[in-house]
């Protein structure tokens, strides 16, 4: 025991080692590898590795699917985040109130976050099924759908995008709600009381007191949401496989289809690297804004 305190110089690297090696092996190494791959002609059948410079990137940018995938990625991310933040605020506000069974409601709301994305998505696959869709049958039963209306959720490009957005909202809402809830409960009751006494009505109270105070932490929730949606391929992979005709392809899924299923490792690596600068920029932007709006 004597040596432990004196040995801080050796203990420190020892304690950091698991985290550092985890990042280095599972994130750093693949990252470096994909940069290296993206500048070669590597594919699953390559016998002879050749350096090709930026050729892969040029070919990716020249492909029409790239622009569709980029646009889809952005639309899915932005639209789902709008709903996630909006609904997350409403839900968090409701959960702040005291009612019996609150614990159960919180648990239920958290469940989508705990469930594996792939399992959740498979559940949704059935909900959106072209024949058995629960949504369609329910809508018909209550008279919302006429006898000749039968939306094919995953088969029509616009509905397929909507489906992907719905599933993303469903799976990211719990995290955002919990984060916003934490922000709401960190506002001292005195501040709310002061606003009441100062004469603020419901809307003024909400928009001038509560919202600005949870804004920094909401931005963190949005940052997580953007990163999770932007890099996610599971929802698209399970629901539509990018179809119909690549209309719902996103960058992550396209990288997977090209690099792993198509065997063109070099081009797949190049596609996936397009995500990186965007995400870095988003992270820097949001952390900066969150820092500036931070109060206390």
């Amino acid at each position: 025991m004597i040596g432990l305190k004196d040995d801080e110089t050796r203990l420190l690297p020892l304690m950091l080692a698991p985290a550092v090696s985890y990042i280095a092996l599972l994130i750093g190494f693949p990252f470096v590898l994909s940069i290296a791959y993206s500048m070669t002609n590597i594919s699953v059948g390559t016998t002879e590795l050749k350096f090709v410079g930026l050729d892969n990137f040029i070919s990716v940018v020249g492909s029409q699917t790239f622009w569709v995938a980029l646009k889809n990625t952005c639309i899915i991310t932005l639209v789902s985040q709008v709903f996630v933040v909006g609904l997350g605020n409403v839900l968090a506000g409701l959960l702040m109130a005291d009612f019996t069974g609150k614990w159960w409601v919180r648990l239920l709301i958290l469940l989508p976050w705990v469930a594996p994305i792939s399992l959740g998505s498979i559940g949704w696959l059935w909900i959106f099924d072209s024949i058995y869709s629960v949504i369609n049958w329910t809508a018909r039963a209550i008279g919302l759908l006429g006898p000749f209306d039968w939306p094919i959720w995953l088969g029509q490009p616009d509905l397929a995008m909507a489906s992907i957005i719905i599933v993303n909202v469903w799976r990211l809402l719990p995290l955002a709600t919990v984060i916003i809830l934490a922000g709401l409960s960190s506002i001292p009751q005195d501040i709310h009381d002061a606003a009441h006494v100062d004469g603020a009505g419901f809307w003024r109270h909400h928009f001038e007191i509560t919202m600005p105070l949870v804004l920094p932490i909401t931005l963190i929730a949005v940052l997580f949401g953007i990163v999770f949606t932007f890099t996610d391929m599971i929802v698209v992979f399970v629901l539509t496989r990018g179809g119909p005709y690549d209309t719902t392809q996103v960058l992550a899924s396209w990288a997977f289809f090209t690099g792993i299923q198509g065997g063109d490792l070099a081009e797949g690596a190049a596609i996936s690297l397009f995500l990186f600068p965007v995400l870095v920029a988003v992270a820097i932007l949001f952390l900066g804004v969150a820092r500036r709006t931070e109060v206390t």
């Binding site: 005195d190 501040i191 002061a194 009441h196 006494v197 004469g199 600005p212 109060v295």
Partner: peptide, 20 residues
């Protein structure tokens, strides 16, 4: 009546200033 119609002012122990 709600607080805002009572024409009162209150100073809290924590001061409850709006931090933003």
């Amino acid at each position: 009546l709600p607080p805002r119609t009572r024409n009162i002012a209150m100073v809290f122990q924590s001061y409850a200033l709006y931090p933003h």
